[in-house]
């Protein structure tokens, strides 16, 4: 006979934190349900880290919209190398560099900004959440008369690969849309890093970052509004980084 469940004394406390509290115990150990829930979250994060970037539907959508795109790769040849050698993920492969140099040489000073879609530590995030954000940005840029470089799609990329890409293309401003390190609660969070006058050697304090872009986090609409604000301010004040970040926070509050 099933006894009625005693009321769960943890219920009101669980509402106060996303932490895994009140799991119960089998002896001293986590009960099976809690253990498997953790294993599932970790499995999804692991799968996201090792998911190979498949940008074909992304490229197809860009092609349908008449947007030129160029696919590049970093010097990290595979995922294992990428994870061990972040320095290689920040450098273009020789072939990719040559292609972007040629593009940039033919069109120097013709573009106001460039967008990079990069796998980073979660290609899932790039596949799922980059296009909705990019479409919003391109619509705003078109309306405002900004000239946007061909969309760069980058494999095995770290954030700073955008510095080499931007320098090769000769653009004054670059936004890198990149998969963030998967957490247990979010295997597919997208991050955006904006850099004025990108060139190798830029530090993170010279960038602005928008984090946690995904339907359950920061929506594409909200991220798009914030990124467009930062892009216009970056262009007006000719900088990105700490100085820009402070004022944008104030602007959001107003």
């Amino acid at each position: 006979m099933a006894l009625p469940e005693p009321s769960d004394p943890w219920a009101p406390l669980r509402a106060l934190t996303p932490a895994r509290i009140g799991l119960g115990a089998a002896g001293v150990s986590q009960p099976t349900g809690a253990q498997l829930a953790f294993q599932l979250a970790h499995a999804r994060a692991r799968d996201a880290v090792h998911h190979a970037f498949g940008p074909s539907s992304l490229l197809h959508a860009l092609g349908s919209a008449g947007r030129p795109a160029v696919v590049v790769a970093s010097e990290a040849a595979d995922r294992a190398t990428y994870l061990r050698r972040p320095d290689l993920g920040r450098r273009l492969s020789p072939e990719s560099r040559a292609r972007l140099d040629a593009l940039g040489h033919a069109a120097r000073d013709r573009w106001d900004a460039a967008f990079v879609i990069a796998d980073g530590l979660s290609a899932l995030a790039a596949e799922r959440h980059a296009l909705p954000l990019l479409e919003r940005m391109l619509a705003r840029a078109d309306t405002a008369g900004w000239r946007i470089a061909p969309i760069v799609v980058a494999h095995q990329a770290r954030v700073a690969l955008g510095d080499e890409i931007g320098a090769a293309l000769g653009v004054p401003l670059i936004a890198v849309l990149i998969g963030e390190r998967p957490g247990l609660s979010s295997p597919d969070s997208l991050g955006v890093y904006l850099t004025w006058e990108p060139r190798p050697g830029r530090s993170d304090s010279e960038r602005n970052c928008i984090s946690n872009v995904r339907p359950d986090g920061l929506s594409a609409d909200a991220a798009g509004a914030r990124l467009w604000y930062l892009m216009r301010e970056a262009r007006r004040r000719q900088l990105t980084g700490v100085a820009l970040k402070d004022e944008s926070a104030i602007a959001r509050l107003e």
Partner: peptide
């Protein structure tokens, strides 16, 4: 709690792990 640090986003050891 549950080995899942929800602020620093990494996995450490749980209260249960110490009891183990």
């Amino acid at each position: 709690p549950g080995a899942d640090d929800v602020m620093l986003h990494y996995q450490s050891t749980s209260f249960h792990d110490a009891l183990y």
